[in-house]
Design a protein around this nucleic acid. Structure first.
Length: 176
DNA sequence: CTTCAGATCCCCT
DNA sequence: GGGGATCTGAAGA
């Protein structure tokens, strides 16, 4: 089956639904003369009225991409590591925590910081549009997720009890 | 301007 | 399993 690039309509939906839908999709990173592909296997949702969300207290220079249109990439740095998110819009986004290497991907891809390192994603990718960028986009190859696992989020100090982490149950590339 | 906490990772035990 | 690295962004004075 041919893999097709996901368009604007895919990203314009409830944040939790978007998070679940991102599981199994192919993250593509082009440029540098090669095309790297990996399958998203673990995500976390950061929603409205969520103290753990960077956008909880409104827009700042760092998180402005989270208020851009659905399908925008939000990249930030924490403790010397980059993390990337798929923006839902209105201050909501989905953190990509881990992926399964498919093509031209070397290094560990389990954990948001490692994943960005393996794919060569940095703050320069913040604000790019996954629907129109020549560097990064998402594809659907028809893969169907066998079973979605749910848990609390990892590494947050607030909003700990909310079940907003989703992963492909049984996949060896899920972190932890 | 200063202070401080953080959506992590690595290395040690 | 736990602590330190390391530095940016945001809040407070």
């Amino acid at each position: 089956m041919n893999a097709s690039r996901l368009g604007p309509e895919f990203y314009d939906r409830d944040a939790v639904e978007l998070a679940k839908s991102l599981l199994g999709k192919i993250f593509t990173r082009a440029g540098d003369g090669v095309v790297r592909r990996c399958r998203i296997v673990e995500v976390e949702a950061y929603v409205k009225n969520d103290p753990a969300n960077h956008a909880y207290r409104g827009m700042t220079p760092r998180n402005r991409s989270m208020f851009s249109k659905p399908g925008t990439l939000y990249v930030y740095m924490v403790h010397n590591n980059f993390c990337m998110n798929v923006v839902r819009g209105g201050g909501e986004a989905i953190l990509i925590r881990a992926a399964q290497p498919l093509e031209n991907v070397a290094g560990d891809t389990r954990g948001p910081g490692r994943l960005c390192r393996a794919l060569g994603i940095d703050r320069g990718f913040d604000g790019l549009d996954l629907c129109s960028s020549d560097l990064v986009w998402l594809e659907d190859d028809g893969y169907v997720v066998p079973r979605i696992g749910v848990s609390r989020r990892i590494g947050v100090s607030q909003g700990k009890t909310r079940l907003l982490r989703f992963y492909i149950d049984g996949n060896r590339w899920v972190s932890r």
